[in-house]
């Protein structure tokens, strides 16, 4: 998978690059819109991450142009602006998603994977992890061909965990993924624990090994080891 990151903040770009490299993605970085267009003309990217507040002009224009020239490329807008108008405009221009700074890298990762999966019309959209098979379009989850009925939150949680497999996920990032802005409603994170516990029980009841490891004081890690 090839990603292009258009972001003027070097420190942030490096973090994002490192994160995706661990995921075995090729993540190239363009500091401004000019060099981004140069890169796009040479390589085909699966997904472009655009900071719409670029120093050399309005990032929304960049999105507009990208969409025109490379309609098959997924676009995720990253912005420090939370303005609803910007969000709506960005999505109207054909960007696939909109993420407000500051964000969790795990959240960005999950969004990138979702965009790539959705864009991959012809290909297999199935998500597989160990014994778990998910058909995202039908929200169908199975272990060893036995269906598992999950609640909406449990399903979202499972997708998120698989997208960020082999990584430490903080409780805050899980809470924000599941509840968005309502995450601060949780006075403690016991609440996540309830969902994790239910999900783990449902998976294990169907003979799935326990992939979920809790990291004391931090969060969870989903991995096959």
């Amino acid at each position: 998978m090839k990603l292009l990151l258009i972001e003027d903040e070097k420190a942030l770009a490096t973090s994002i690059q490192n994160y995706f490299q661990r995921e075995n993605f090729i993540c190239e970085w363009a500091q401004d819109y000019e060099s981004a267009i140069g890169k796009i003309n040479i390589y085909k990217y699966d997904c472009v991450l655009v900071d719409i507040m670029l120093p050399d002009g309005d990032g929304l224009n960049a999105v507009r142009e990208l969409k025109k020239k490379f309609p098959e490329t997924g676009i995720i807008i990253i912005s420090a602006k939370n303005s609803l108008d910007d969000r709506i405009e960005g999505l109207n221009l054909g960007s696939d998603d909109y993420l407000t700074k500051p964000f969790h890298l795990s959240e960005l990762n999950a969004r990138v994977q979702a965009v790539i999966r959705r864009r991959n019309f012809q290909g297999n959209q199935q998500i597989r992890f160990g014994k778990i098979v998910i058909e995202p379009q039908e929200h169908f989850v199975s272990v060893d061909a036995q269906e598992i009925i999950l609640t909406r939150k449990e399903y979202d949680l499972l997708i998120y965990l698989i997208a960020n497999k082999n990584r430490v996920l903080t409780k805050e990032s899980i809470a924000e993924h599941l509840w968005g802005d309502d995450a601060d409603l949780m006075d403690n994170f016991d609440f996540i624990y309830t969902h994790i516990k239910n999900l783990r029980k449902k998976l294990m009841d169907k003979g799935c090994p326990d992939y979920l490891r809790s990291i004391y004081g931090v969060g969870y890690k989903f991995s096959e080891q």
Binding site: E9, A11, L12, S15, I16, N18, Y19, A80, K101, P102, F103, H104, L105, S106, R167, V168, T170, S173, V218, G219
Partner: peptide, 14 residues
């Protein structure tokens, strides 16, 4: 933006 940098570095460290 600096907050995004802080958070991304923390996540990398984790």
């Amino acid at each position: 933006t600096p907050l995004a940098v802080i958070l991304s570095k923390i996540e990398g460290l984790f």
